[in-house]
Nucleic acid binder design. Sequence first.
DNA 1: TATTTTATTGAGATTGAGTCTCAGAAAATA
DNA 2: TATTTTCTGAGACTCAATCTCAATAAAATA
Lengths: 142, 142
Amino acid sequence: MSFFDPLKKALRKEGLRYTQQRQAVWDELRATDDHRDAEEIYLALRNSGFKVSRATVYRTIDVLVKNNLVRKLKLGDGHARFEHKVDSAHHDHLICAQCGKIEEFVDDVIETRQNKIVEELGSKLIRHIHQLFVICKECQTA
Amino acid sequence: MSFFDPLKKALRKEGLRYTQQRQAVWDELRATDDHRDAEEIYLALRNSGFKVSRATVYRTIDVLVKNNLVRKLKLGDGHARFEHKVDSAHHDHLICAQCGKIEEFVDDVIETRQNKIVEELGSKLIRHIHQLFVICKECQTA
DNA sequence: TATTTTATTGAGATTGAGTCTCAGAAAATA
DNA sequence: TATTTTCTGAGACTCAATCTCAATAAAATA
């Protein structure tokens, strides 16, 4: 709500208005550290009694992603998932193919090699996707 | 066409029949080393005079992917791309975000670190996706 | 080979995530 | 308050991919 509120800052930058709906979507995204899809965010808001449309949820998330407040994850199951980036450094994901659990990982060696590969080709790295699909410890013993 | 023909082998394994359509889709996939989507494969077949439906193209590709003859790539643009795996070792992809050009890379150090990360969590690696989105050399100077 | 059985095919319907439209609502501005 | 501009929501629409089911082709059998 402060002057440094990242939502308001992003909206100002984009020349967009501050609205109840946009605040609500942003609040809902920060409510958990899960990786939820747009429908889950939409339903969470509806179930909490807040009236909002799917269109607005999608539109708001787009703005948040564009302004680096939210990360969009495509894990190949046909619907994008989102995680807020508050207090969250860069990381990649490790997904259990059986139970769907998502863990995060970072590896400096990998990051360095990645940069080297790109550099040697004379290219400029924009972003990367690194996803490890596994059977997690629990699913193996179960 | 031989006894070791990988298509026939895969079909046998799956308990499926050998048909002209399945042969044609497999032939078309091997015709280039590009990363084409289902529609491009479909159109290439139609343009060469072969009558086949989209449904059959999709269904056949599924069998080929399942049997490790074709690799399915999701690059985030909403339609999967495919590449045959004949004489092709494991590799990951580097995609120019501007011109769409796709290059391949492998890095043993990255592969090793990947395995280590998974191992330390007690998980078992099934598959991975590693995509580097870049601006390629040509697009930078252009 | 002819016949029967079973799987495959194709045209088009359907699905589902995501986007678009546009009239009414809400916010900014005068 | 009046006027202008942006935002919202309901539902239509898009598009890749999947499904349906009658017709067809392949395999099995006689």
